[in-house]
Design a protein around this nucleic acid. Sequence first.
DNA 1: TCCATTCTTCTAGTAAAATAGAAATATTGG
DNA 2: CCAATATTTCTATTTTACTAGAAGAATGGA
Lengths: 115, 115
Amino acid sequence: METESALQVLTGLAHETRLSIFRLLVEVGHEGLLAGEIATHLEIPGTTLSFHLKNMSQAGLVVSERLGTSIRYSADFDAMNGLVSYLTANCCGGNMSACAPRKKSTRRRKATASR
Amino acid sequence: METESALQVLTGLAHETRLSIFRLLVEVGHEGLLAGEIATHLEIPGTTLSFHLKNMSQAGLVVSERLGTSIRYSADFDAMNGLVSYLTANCCGGNMSACAPRKKSTRRRKATASR
DNA sequence: TCCATTCTTCTAGTAAAATAGAAATATTGG
DNA sequence: CCAATATTTCTATTTTACTAGAAGAATGGA
């Protein structure tokens, strides 16, 4: 995965509405939902939904199929799975074990709590 | 992980500069880099870097430690790992195997736009 | 063909995020 | 205490993203 597409996937999820859409589609599984069903479920206008679905579709987060006058959308896990590999590529200069979730005993949080 | 913090993590990575920062810190490993080293490496002004590091710090993507007049930043994988679980939570109504990379499915449902 | 559905694109207005200079802050050494 | 260094916060400006109404396009039925 290239930086460009990793950014698309991240941007495709980094919005409250789009994250809701994705998780909803993840929950229902491969059969997905019709655009209208998503709009009703999340209570957002169709035009707004369409804007986000286009974004997510280009990012590879969802796939669509037309069914009559409706369009069925479903989550595509491939983009998300690829993202994780991308984020940890060349982790710790090749020493992957250092990237494993650290144990609590060795974890160190920063002392200066910003915000 | 809650939706709010998942969004913070995603937003924390969904920007070209911040993604570069994160991957750079992932590569160098636990020892991290000083803020100034990051700025030099990525060729961005210190104020811009600081803006992004604050963002990422609040998202839990990086941790910092002061070393004299410098501040050392390093990647924290916990937030990213938690994100993946969050994204696939309740996947396919509990049928996790359905989330594995899929084969070409011809399954199809009747187009009823009810609800 | 004409019409009702369903969804998308167009468009313009609104909101949010990013940039970077100037000023401020924390630290250490003299 | 003062100066030098590294970084952050403040601020204004610019850029990008989101929203949603109106209009347009695809589909299937009568």
